[in-house]
Amino acid sequence: MDISVVVPLYNEEESLPELTAWIDRVMLQHGYLYEIILVDDGSTDRSWNAIVQLKEANPHITGIRFRRNYGKSAALNVGFAAAEGDVIITMDADLQDSPDEIPELYDRITNQGADLVSGWKQKRHDPLSKTIPTKLFNSVTRSMSGIHNLHDFNCGLKAYRKDVVKSIEVYGEMHRYIPVLAKWAGFSKIQEQIVKHYPRKYGTTKFGPGRFIKGFLDLASIFFVGKFAKRPMHFFGPIGVLSFLIGFVITLYLIFDKLASIANATPYRNVTDQPLFYLSLVAIILGTQLFLTGFIAELVSRNGSDRNKYHIEQVI
């Protein structure tokens, strides 16, 4: 099979007939062997009924229904597991992503050697309350991930080589960081394609300000797990040792200062009356705790089921 189109959706019953007909038209025009995987993320409207009807009319459609709303990442992860195409295309169900972009995305993967192609909605039809935070989010993500050639990490319209989606796990709000997950998994050929962005035609946006808070927390998680999952002591150890040494040096200073005052018969304050004493105490305790955290995390990592799980590209 050439292409699997994975569409996560939540309360998009009005858009689905038009979207699937549009995808079908593009596929037939280019002669692709394809499937459309519609993942209903616990919709409360008649989206599932629409999927059932579409499935009856088009055998290329597969429907997956969650019992409740789990989020876009969960829907994508299940869709990736079910996809059988050589190239996987993801797009939102709200008709803001254009299926007409599929042929070029497919060509970038199959003929130009890309592992992942992310869409860039250069001209957006969204309010400032969404576009300004998105620019900030993308800027921080570029800086932390080192993927400087992407302008829009969260664009729903993306294309993947099959190996990519079968090598990553998407959960939480991690769908925003799939390019980062792909990079950590060893897929470095990440490209960008300018795509058209259409105004929402039906329904209401599922965007909320709380998603950015969760998104940045997930970015921190990805950064830590990607770099230190198999060697957590390399993260906690140096910080803990540095904090302990700072506290220890301050303690030595206070002790020698008191001894010097006694030897010179000069007035001195009790060590416990000085703010530096409490600073050194906190530094020593914090350093010890961080070091022990790294040690325990190292034990957990070494006993984990995936401690020696690595992504192998080829065996000959």
Rank of each mutant, 00 (worst) to 15 (best):
L245H: 06
T131R: 00
S221T: 12
A82P: 06
S305A: 04
R124C: 09
I51Q: 14
P267V: 00
H30D: 08
A220C: 08
N77H: 15
T134A: 11
G113Y: 13
V315R: 01
I296M: 14
V271A: 01
F295Y: 14
P275G: 05
S280A: 06
D45I: 05
C155P: 02
R124D: 11
S43T: 14
G113E: 13
E56V: 04
I109C: 12
A297S: 15
Y278A: 00
G113H: 13
L252A: 09
P8V: 07
I61W: 12
G156Y: 04
W48Q: 08
L95R: 06
A75Q: 09
I312E: 03
I316Q: 04
A114T: 11
A93T: 02
K227G: 05
V180M: 03
T134G: 05
R108T: 13
S280P: 00
V26Q: 07
L76W: 12
A283C: 06
K123G: 10
A265V: 01
L279I: 13
H234F: 12
E313G: 09
L286C: 03
K206F: 03
D2G: 04
K135M: 07
T131P: 01
R46W: 14
L290H: 08
L136D: 02
N111I: 10
M1A: 15
D107A: 14
T110S: 12
I89K: 11
H151K: 08
G186S: 03
E84S: 12
I51Y: 15
I239G: 03
K55R: 14
Y278L: 00
V39C: 09
Y253F: 11
F236A: 05
D115E: 09
P209F: 00
V7A: 10
A50Q: 13
S167H: 06
S261W: 01
Q191E: 15
F207K: 00
I262N: 03
H148M: 09
G31M: 00
E169H: 14
